[in-house]
Amino acid sequence: MHALAIRDEALRLLASGLSLSETSRQTGVSLNTIRRWRAGPAADSPVTRTCVRCASRAHAPAPADSYAHLLGLYLGDGHIVACRKGVYLLSIYCDNHWPGLIEEAATTMAQVMPTSVVSRRHRNGCTEVKSLSKHWPHLFPQHGPGKKHERAIVLEPWQREIVSAHPGRFVRGLIHSDGWRGTNRVRRDLPSGVRWYEYPRYHFKNESSDILALCGEALDLLGVAWRFNNRNELSVARREAVELLDLHVGPKY
């Protein structure tokens, strides 16, 4: 394996929660070398490749599809808070009813910031998936004081490029964090009696009109028909639209 690939694999293992000794055992690299990689990654390391402000040449985070997904999770139901020494905490809150989404959020977070450990904190009815890094505000410039719906949420050009290339992953993050796929029941009073019709549909609810608009734009890119169900909620209900969105999102699990 190439030396850069070995280093990247070691940093990925550390980010997944493995100890220094276990990472050393799995990669065959000495403890001192792994400590040096963790403390001061080189210019072409995952830190600079995943932070658009730290690279000598600013660029978008990679992998781009994972970033699109994490951006959706963050805008839907995540937040960033400042900690001490210039470190920031990114938190995504996941309902405990959906363990698969908890694991997916943790995996995506580790892929986007492979040099930071992703951990979980169990709370009442939910699990906080979190990661500490100095670079989270660089990757999510929408971070700011106050609630998201109380300030403008505008994507940077490089973020728009990623969402345009991976709208399905972006919408997946939004709906899996702040939306749902369920069954709608409609009553019809007919001369022959009452009949009930059932059909699946998606909802995405958010108090930010900017975030709702971003969701709608991504659905347009996917060719998914949608409409506003309420001032703070959009709906995907047409059968062909639901079937198309199922390819990218699907039920929570």
Rank of each mutant, 00 (worst) to 15 (best):
G179R: 06
N229D: 15
Y199D: 06
E161A: 11
V186R: 15
R169V: 02
N206S: 12
E233I: 00
E233V: 00
M113N: 11
S209E: 15
A110R: 11
F228D: 12
E156T: 08
G100N: 12
R169I: 02
S209L: 13
H143V: 10
L221Y: 00
G100W: 07
R172A: 08
E104R: 12
L214V: 03
T107P: 02
Q111E: 13
N184R: 13
G216V: 01
M109S: 01
Y199W: 12
D178W: 02
L139H: 04
R195C: 06
H122R: 13
R185N: 09
N232S: 11
R121E: 15
F170M: 03
C215T: 13
A225S: 14
T108Q: 03
W226G: 05
R151V: 01
E156L: 08
P141R: 10
V112N: 10
L155N: 06
G179I: 00
L234D: 08
K148P: 15
H143G: 09
V154N: 11
V129R: 05
G182N: 09
S208K: 05
L234C: 09
A213S: 14
R187Q: 12
P141H: 08
G168M: 01
V224S: 04
D178I: 02
D178P: 06
E161L: 04
R120L: 13
L234T: 10
V224Y: 00
C126D: 12
H166Q: 07
C126Q: 11
P137I: 03
W196P: 02
A213M: 08
K130L: 14
W196I: 08
V224I: 05
Y202R: 08
G182V: 02
P191C: 06
L214D: 08
A218N: 09
W226D: 01
R239T: 15
E217D: 15
A213N: 14
G144Q: 08
L219P: 10
Y197E: 15
P141L: 04
V129T: 06
L139W: 00
Q111K: 14
S131H: 08
